[in-house]
Amino acid sequence: MSIEKYTRNFLKEVEERVEEGHWVKMCMQCGVCAGSCPLGAHWEHTPQKIFMMIRAGKREEVLSSDSMWMCTSCYQCIVRCPRKLPITHIMHGLAYLAKREGLAPKNQPTAQFGQLFWDNLIKTGRVNELKLSLGMYFKDGFSQGIKNAMAMQSVGMGMMKAKRLNPMEIMGGHGVKDKSGFQAMLKKARELEDGRRKLA
């Protein structure tokens, strides 16, 4: 979709399709969010800049930005925003839209982790931590996986000792009682959300 610059098209899309997206128009470009983010130095665009880009109609650039994926939900930006924008929520909402639109950056570690986590969770309704960890280690190939596992060895051992990680989980692990009910619930939720946010 090509968007004419500084028209409402993309802003309107964000307002409709992104959680708390209707707040984007309220930003006054003070930049306090940008300076408040503890991970700020590590991403491409600051939140306030993302908001300006939305108003400027830069759909591709916004949705392919890595910025939303770097949010750790510390809420510093929300606390300080003089316009009370729920920035954290907007950033997550944008990330979700980007993902659904297939524009999220490839090989972005947070995005990858998110996908792994989700895939892991929906299988049984419980997070299988061992599989999740291994999945993370080996996402970049076998030899890199071994290296990662070795580097994290002491942490893993510690977790096992503290009974926070069960090696037996490799066999399949625990899950919720009514797995199919759980999955049906997720499906329905997704349907509702997709309908509401026009994500079909």
């Binding site: 500084y6 409402r8 802003l11 128009k25 309220m26 006054m28 470009q29 300006m52 108003r55 400027a56």
Partner: peptide, 9 residues
């Protein structure tokens, strides 16, 4: 802003 006016520096 609330009414949707876009402001651009």
């Amino acid at each position: 802003q609330n009414k949707g006016v876009t402001f651009t520096k």
